[in-house]
């Protein structure tokens, strides 16, 4: 109960924190991978670097799924009791969906062919 109260605010930031993390890790790994030549190492149809990026992206999508699920459950409880926290949980749930859509949106970039400069 108290956790539903205290965590409400945290979860409002959590969805997009995962997005931001996805963003920074993808950008960081992409830059590092280009430096270290991982894009020239083929693994099956794609390069090692691209597999890595897809994996990172998918892991963050999964994390967002978890955040969404937590918010949904908490919303059900708090809304049933008409607690003021229900508002925050509803907003957090919406934010987790928004963050997932934003992650899919930046994921579009993974389709771009030229992964490193020359």
């Amino acid at each position: 109960m108290t956790s539903l109260r205290n965590q409400a605010f945290l979860f409002m930031a959590l969805g997009f924190t995962v997005w931001a993390l996805a963003f920074s890790v993808l950008y960081g790994v992409q830059g590092t991978g280009c430096e270290l030549g991982w894009h020239r190492q083929p693994v099956g149809p794609l390069s090692l670097l691209r597999w890595l990026l897809i994996l990172i992206w998918a892991a963050h999508m999964a994390a967002l799924g978890w955040v969404y699920w937590r918010c949904r459950a908490a919303l059900a409880v708090t809304a049933a009791k008409a607690m003021p926290e229900a508002f925050l949980w509803r907003a957090s749930m919406a934010l987790s969906i928004t963050a997932a859509v934003a992650t899919v949106w930046i994921g579009l970039a993974l389709l771009v062919p030229s992964i490193c400069v020359v």
Partner: peptide, 26 residues
């Protein structure tokens, strides 16, 4: 959402510094 997204845009001021296309696409 806007607050968070706005922290992920900074490189659009650096589109001409020679960053690979995939990163620019992010």
């Amino acid at each position: 959402a806007m607050a968070f997204l706005s922290f992920g845009l900074w490189v659009h001021h650096m589109f001409t510094v020679g960053i690979p296309h995939l990163a620019l696409a992010f």
